[in-house]
Design a protein around this nucleic acid. Structure first.
Lengths: 249, 249
DNA sequence: CGTGCGGTTGATCCGAGTCAAGCCAAGTGG
DNA sequence: CCACTTGGCTTGACTCGGATCAACCGCACG
């Protein structure tokens, strides 16, 4: 992990210079900063530092006190919980624009680890907490995100409690396609290894492999290489995901 | 469902009278109202109405627009999602003091139904949304609750993805014991039927029944009747729940 | 040219689901 | 008061889906 200090410390000297890294920020519009007042944004920026995690590096460990929170600028993180016997469950993924870390004091409920090289904009948690209390619009933005995350986690509960292995894999592919916003026929990158997919879906690596093979044999998807796929029939994939009823909606 | 209007409409006439139902509120200290300023509390109260749901009555349907949000005064609610084939998954329970409903516009991700006779303090969602925007402390309280709910949902993800049937049942009993705050040896009420436990744990009714029998035969718990249990060995129950490592913590 | 790693495929096993029967307590009606 | 029904729960026999164990493939890299 290295710290990218370009322009950050300059924040104290000039408002215009301070705001400049945000102006070129790749996720400026999607991040939690998007709806902040200029004042709040400057305030946040002067307390931020940008870092880059290498693949496999862990930002926060499950059970530790949360020292930092932040926004993902690029790359991909996983949120995981590990059971006593060592098996890990991926609780969620953090894409560019997502907020990570647990503000307001509770111990971290999950470890946060880079799956690819990942750039973040970090804030010390105490500073962020204080800033959130002073800036209702920041708190509001955080609340909206947290409510969405809760909805997403609950949808995952249904998947894990009630869906078969084949349905889980199909659902995963659809989610990746949604996130990527790709059309049918164009390749979509799977940023996870088979093991990580298994950890995400509550399955084993062998079952994931088999179910992918089945979808390929059924001509629902193509698998040009290990890290990408192409949807041949979105309808068939919805069907395989067990959500055909929701297709209407 | 009937509306209890005692003292509610009086709120418009006198501050002192308006606040009175809150003063005798059984969950005054635990509810979201607890940390509000007098001003915000009065404001909230004048926009509230108290209702009682009978067992089985549904407050909000999955997929509908959320018209009301509120606080549980007494009783027990379930949050559920139903799959295309009709099987339902319980996503969570709402105890007295808990906040229910999805503020800020998204469609309801789950149905909310009374498991026992349940009293609530309700607010029209739009009024609540507006009030939350004007009262940062209300929004802050809501954010803390939502963050806790998210942590809880993610722990449930681990349970559903990785725990065996026996571990799930043991974990459930421990959670009920925690919620009830009961000592070992004193009976704890199970407010759910076997079917509801199964819906909560992602199992079938038969499996729940068998695993409870095993715990009884192993002298870990007593089951004096269908709706209550007694913990004989908390340590053994932690062990059965697969969380023995966390006992140290 | 081996060696290691991630992935696939096959054979077998096991835990939880399914199907079916029976138990028990609480109605209900003759 | 007793026979009958009903609904929730338990128990047993069997099935099946996904885990486990093991062999193998293909590619990157020393």
């Amino acid at each position: 992990m290295y710290v990218d200090t370009t322009g950050v410390m300059a924040g104290a000297t000039s408002t215009r210079i301070a705001a400049s890294p945000c102006l070129v920020c790749p996720i400026r519009e999607r991040a939690i900063c998007a709806h902040l007042s200029d004042d709040a944004l400057r305030n946040l920026l002067t307390r931020s530092r940008r870092i880059v995690l290498q693949r496999g590096e862990t930002l926060i460990w499950e059970g530790d006190e949360t020292l930092v929170v932040g926004t993902v600028r690029s790359g991909l993180l996983k949120l995981t919980s590990t059971m006593g016997d060592g098996r890990e469950q991926i609780l969620g993924l953090a894409f560019p624009g997502d907020f990570v870390g647990r503000p307001f004091g509770a111990l971290a409920g999950s470890s946060i680890t880079a799956l690819t090289e990942t750039a973040l904009c970090l804030f010390r948690r105490h500073a962020f907490d204080a800033l959130a209390r002073d800036h209702p619009e920041l708190q509001h933005a955080l609340l909206l995100r947290t409510l969405d995350e809760l909805d997403r986690a609950r949808r995952w509960i249904v998947l894990l409690a009630r869906k078969s292995a084949g349905e889980r894999v199909a659902t995963f592919l659809l989610e990746m396609a949604d996130r990527a916003g790709a059309e049918d026929g164009e390749p979509i990158e799977i940023m996870l290894s088979r093991q990580q997919m298994a950890d995400f879906l509550g399955l084993t690596i062998e079952t994931v492999s088999r179910k992918l093979t089945h979808l390929r044999q059924a001509r629902v998807v193509q698998l040009p290489d290990l890290k990408s796929f192409v949807i041949l029939s979105r309808k068939a994939l919805w069907n395989a995901a067990g959500d055909l009823d929701r297709l209407a909606a």
